[in-house]
């Protein structure tokens, strides 16, 4: 997999600090499952977190070590759990949101063969969804109020900025008005996270928006 579009330092650092809405963390964790380069950078940001933590200390209260020693006597060693691995085009972290596989996804039509499925996340900072775009079809022209991350899982799309293939992540802010078009051939399947609601430029999708929660 030749990945061309990677995550910025800013996103990786915010992910290391656990300061992102769940939907963004899901896209980042999915990209990291596909991209060794960003995975290594992400581990470096964990190391930076460790270095930040090393630098300050606050004394523990008296007896805390003894209390902890007593406590660990009662604790079993945690069992080694099975490795969480990706399945086919679905990165491991995404599997948890799909009920186990891509076949379980309940798609809703957005018109012209484009389908989407909203994924349930626990905070309102951003929303996550899967997009299914048949070869040659376009996602309605849209801008957004905040940041949008789009990770390609299968196929490829192009928009005004570039081409995005499997593993590539597009980072778009509110200034980007784009019309992603899937390449001819296999359908393009993407995982997207959006801060705030999308803005559609055409009237019809705008009317449909409250119903489809795009």
């Amino acid at each position: 997999m030749k990945i061309k579009h990677h995550l910025s330092d800013e996103l990786l650092m915010a992910y290391a600090a656990a300061e992102l809405p769940e939907a963004f963390s899901l896209v980042i964790a999915s990209h990291l499952s596909m991209c060794d380069e960003c995975r290594a950078r992400s581990m470096a940001f964990d190391a930076l977190g460790g270095a930040v933590m090393e630098d300050h200390a606050v004394e523990m209260s008296e007896g805390s070590l003894a209390a902890c020693l007593d406590r660990i006597d009662t604790l079993p060693q945690a069992n080694a759990r099975a490795l969480r691995r990706s399945q086919g085009i679905v990165p491991a972290p995404l599997l948890d949101y799909l009920g186990g596989s891509l076949d379980q996804v309940k798609w809703r039509p957005l018109g012209l063969g484009v389908r989407q499925a909203i994924l349930r996340t626990s905070d309102k900072g951003a929303s996550a969804r899967l997009l299914y775009i048949p070869g040659g079809a376009a996602v309605p022209d849209h801008g957004h109020r905040g940041l949008e991350l789009t990770l390609v899982l299968q196929g490829a799309f192009r928009d005004e900025t570039d081409r995005f293939g499997p593993g590539d992540v597009e980072v778009a802010d509110s200034s980007v008005e784009h019309t992603p078009i899937a390449e001819e051939g296999a359908a393009c399947i993407c995982l997207a996270a959006t801060q705030g609601a999308l803005r559609f430029n055409a009237l019809l999708p705008r009317l449909a928006q409250p119903f489809f929660r795009i």
């Binding site: 656990a18 992102l20 499952s33 995975r39 969480r84 990706s86 491991a92 948890d96």
Partner: peptide
């Protein structure tokens, strides 16, 4: 804080 999904295990 918000849940933080983890990448696949190495």
């Amino acid at each position: 804080k918000s849940r933080r999904p983890e990448p696949e295990d190495l």
